Simulated assay, not measured.
Amino acid sequence: MDKKSFTFEEIKQKLVHYCVYQDRCHAEVEQKMKEFLLIPEAKEEIFLYLIQENYLNEERFTRSYIRGKFYIKHWGRNKIRINLKQKQVSEKLIEKCFDEIDERDYEKTLRKIFDDYYSKQNGLKEYQKKSKTIKYLMSKGFEYEKINDIFE
């Protein structure tokens, strides 16, 4: 496929739009830049521009990602952390931004998902219900210790 050639300014504008449409992390913007045949200096210049003009902000991205995945998708911290790491967000930044999740909300959400899932496990022995429920909640990214607390 032939890559349509754009001027430097057009590419810059396309990347601004890409960042304005939704918060992006650095890795996503780098990936997007690969669509355009840019020399390293041009990439660098656009990157700096996006950061200086606050179109690209890794902390803002991380905070909105955490809020969305928890409050909308109901993922636990482990799943959120793994997915952010795949986007090359640093552990330090991830930890700093986890305060986006209110601890009471976290426990309430875990409890609700637990109740919904557990109550649907019919015709199983108690230990089977328990082990299926633990597996399910862990797959949603909730910490084993937190899940265990519910059974206490």
Rank of each mutant, 00 (worst) to 15 (best):
M1W: 14
D2E: 13
F6G: 01
F8H: 11
F8P: 04
E9V: 12
K12P: 00
Q13R: 12
Q13L: 11
Q13W: 11
L15F: 00
V16K: 06
V16Y: 00
H17Y: 15
Y18C: 05
Y18D: 02
D23T: 05
R24M: 05
E28W: 05
V29C: 04
Q31I: 05
K32N: 02
M33L: 14
M33F: 06
K34E: 13
K34H: 10
E35G: 07
E35W: 01
E35C: 05
E35S: 12
L38V: 07
I39W: 12
P40M: 10
E41A: 11
E41T: 08
A42K: 14
K43R: 15
I46H: 03
F47A: 10
L50S: 04
L50T: 04
Q52N: 12
N54Y: 11
N57G: 08
E58C: 05
R60I: 10
T62P: 00
R63I: 07
R63T: 08
R63H: 07
S64H: 13
S64R: 14
Y65I: 03
R67Y: 13
G68A: 07
K69T: 03
K69G: 02
K69R: 14
F70S: 02
Y71P: 01
Y71E: 02
I72N: 06
I72F: 06
K73E: 15
H74E: 13
R77P: 04
R77L: 13
K79C: 03
R81Y: 14
I82V: 13
L84M: 04
L84W: 00
K85I: 07
K85H: 10
Q86C: 11
Q86L: 14
K87Y: 04
K87T: 03
V89N: 00
S90I: 02
K92L: 11
D99V: 15
E100S: 10
E100H: 04
D102W: 04
D102S: 08
R104V: 15
K108T: 13
K108S: 10
L110Q: 01
L110T: 00
R111K: 12
K112T: 11
K112C: 08
F114C: 03
D115C: 08
D115L: 15
D115A: 15
D116W: 06
D116F: 06
Y117F: 15
Y117S: 06
K120D: 09
N122C: 08
K125T: 08
K125F: 11
E126Q: 11
Y127E: 14
Y127F: 09
Q128S: 10
Q128K: 15
K129Y: 00
K130L: 09
T133P: 00
I134C: 01
K135P: 05
K135R: 12
L137W: 01
L137Y: 01
S139Y: 09
K140V: 01
E143K: 15
E143P: 02
Y144I: 09
E145F: 12
K146W: 05
K146A: 15
K146N: 12
I147S: 00
D149A: 13
E152R: 13
